[in-house]
Design a protein around this nucleic acid. Structure first.
Lengths: 340, 340
DNA sequence: ATGAAAGCGCTAACAG
DNA sequence: CTGTTAGCGCTTTCAT
């Protein structure tokens, strides 16, 4: 089969015996076309299988109805769930998505990524990279270079930048307070990697909730989100401090390992060891025993982010400066059988 | 801050005192430019922060260095993992991704999606929608309309279409044979929704492995991939047929519920009930007990798919018809503690 | 080594 | 209601 050059508006115009202008009017649904003409053109469009070039359109209009999305860690479930929400919502609003990955989590690679997105005339950018170390430092010096609206997801809120984040601090407080209600001897924490803003916030929530109850937040071990790091952390905690009878893990995957370690040691859950996780993965309801956890709706985070971004874009079209806001949403506790 | 119109090649040309042509040569790294000129232009490019418009380029070249990706079910982990692999690999090859979601799994919406992708001049398309019901029927009548190479992921192999699929049938055979080695009284199956090609293949693998061993594949219940459906299925099986002492679940999430149900009924695993899952989720190694499962590397599936697609695109550039092939990769069994 | 002219596919602005 | 002219930002001839 030969792949001849794609059919253009000219081909349609010629075959329908009208000017390209008229064809343009028809395919854009303008009212000022005679019914007869419109029908003729429409049928030729069908016949030839004509599809207007989004590129040519974008070139003229200066916009492309495309949103740029920057992700990282495309191996982890969290970011991917967020992406899921982004995809659906963008579709809903009629935007296509141009996806770029920031390899690793480093800051260095930011410029080429932005370049690609901007050169494709994206109408806005959604930044979904977790804040790790100083990988958001470029923001302070560099943000002005970006000629389109940009929304950051799960970032430490900053002045004058639009972002949408889940309140890790409050989530961790919820978890810890819930454990405190059981009046345990002591509550340990298995944190995420402390270079992560999210991990630090959760840790801080645990600490403050402990102090608030007159307890010392003495025992914590740093994990790396993975179940295997959770296993190590749990073993270590239980070995060195047998008095620990409650653990707050910074995500469900690490909490899962805590359960496993406890089973191996014949420790009863929740009687001898209470556990709370974080994330609210669907499967956590079927762990053994079903895991008490703090649910954060990553999917909704993504779709909400798109809505904010689209808002900014619309605002700009209408020449009014949109209010830059840092929105924070609260996670919620789901009590199940690893506490009571 | 005013957002003036973006700087174009003309601005650079004027400021550098050369023609747009020369600028074009410089930014494309052509050799035929005087060193002095090149340097002058380069510095102006920097100074003005000029980024060539990918749209204008694509318009001329007839290609965009963009791959179209069509996904579905952006709430499930599987497809998202595949997407992760796609993202990374595309990046590697210098392609951007244009992402579209097929809402639901229906066939009706295919045309508009393709239209969007084609109108954006994508160089190729990656179809990652699971084959459900007859949602791939459009292929037979419609494929010719698509003017770019297209690769299908996890589809029932067809003549003359390039696809890359994981061998569900073999995977299920592996799982079942492994269970048979324990010489159980009988092995039940919890399947995925049988409208899914993948689910039917896994079921068939279980059936054939049973027959091969002179057993009757009598007991199976249809789930819907979710843990909650798995819970129901497991309860039902165990209630109605207490003699069941081995279960092959069509995915890990349903297998997880089998474990939970067994624990509740004080059934020992694996002594009284052996369990094998499917997918090889990272967490399955930390279920209680660690789950024997069939691992399919969805991430690699995605990256591999991109490589095939890029191959097709390159081939087309060089005017030779690439061989259309249906590639199948094998999953592998990971024995853990729910069997032995 | 550099520039001028033409055009990629489409639409905006103006006629008529 | 419809056609003409111009031009989006860039690259491709073809001169010079």
């Amino acid at each position: 089969m030969f792949k001849m050059s794609r059919t253009t508006i000219k081909d349609v115009a010629r075959k329908a015996g009208v000017s390209t202008q008229t064809v343009s009017r028809v395919i854009n649904g303008r009212p000022d076309v005679a019914v007869a003409t419109r029908e003729r053109v429409t049928s030729v469009v069908q016949e030839l299988g004509f599809r207007p070039s989004a590129l040519a359109r974008g070139l003229i209009k200066g916009r492309s109805f495309t949103l740029g999305v920057v992700t990282a860690g495309s191996k982890d479930v969290g970011p991917l769930l967020t992406l899921g929400g982004i995809i659906s919502e963008a579709q809903e609003h009629g935007y296509a998505l141009l996806l770029e990955e920031l390899p690793g989590f480093t800051a260095t690679e930011v410029e080429p990524i932005i370049d690609i997105l901007v050169s494709h005339q994206v109408d806005g950018i959604l930044w979904t990279i977790p804040e790790i170390g100083d990988n958001h430092a470029w923001l302070d010096t560099w943000l002005d270079e970006i000629p389109v609206p940009i929304v950051f997801l799960n970032m430490h809120p900053r002045q004058g930048i639009t972002s949408l984040s889940i309140d890790n601090y409050t989530g961790a407080m919820l978890a810890t307070r819930h454990l405190l209600e059981m009046d345990p001897r002591t509550i340990a924490h298995i944190s995420g990697p402390l270079t992560w803003w999210d991990a630090r916030e959760r840790m801080r929530g645990w600490q403050d909730a402990m102090k608030e109850a007159g307890r010392e937040p003495d025992f914590s071990v740093e994990g790396n989100w993975s179940s295997s790091s959770g296993e190590e952390a749990a073993s270590q905690l239980l070995d060195s401090h047998p008095e620990i009878d409650a653990i707050f893990a910074a995500n469900d995957q690490m909490a899962l390992s805590v359960l496993l370690v406890a089973h191996r040691r014949k420790i009863c859950i929740p009687e001898e060891l209470a556990v709370v996780g974080y994330d609210g993965l669907a499967e956590s309801a079927y762990y053994f025993p079903p895991l008490t956890t703090v649910h954060q709706d990553l999917y909704t985070l993504g779709s909400h982010g798109v809505r904010m971004l689209v808002g900014l874009i619309e605002a700009e079209r209408q020449e009014w400066t949109a209010p830059l806001q840092a929105t924070v949403v609260s996670p919620k506790l789901i009590p199940r059988s690893t506490t009571w």
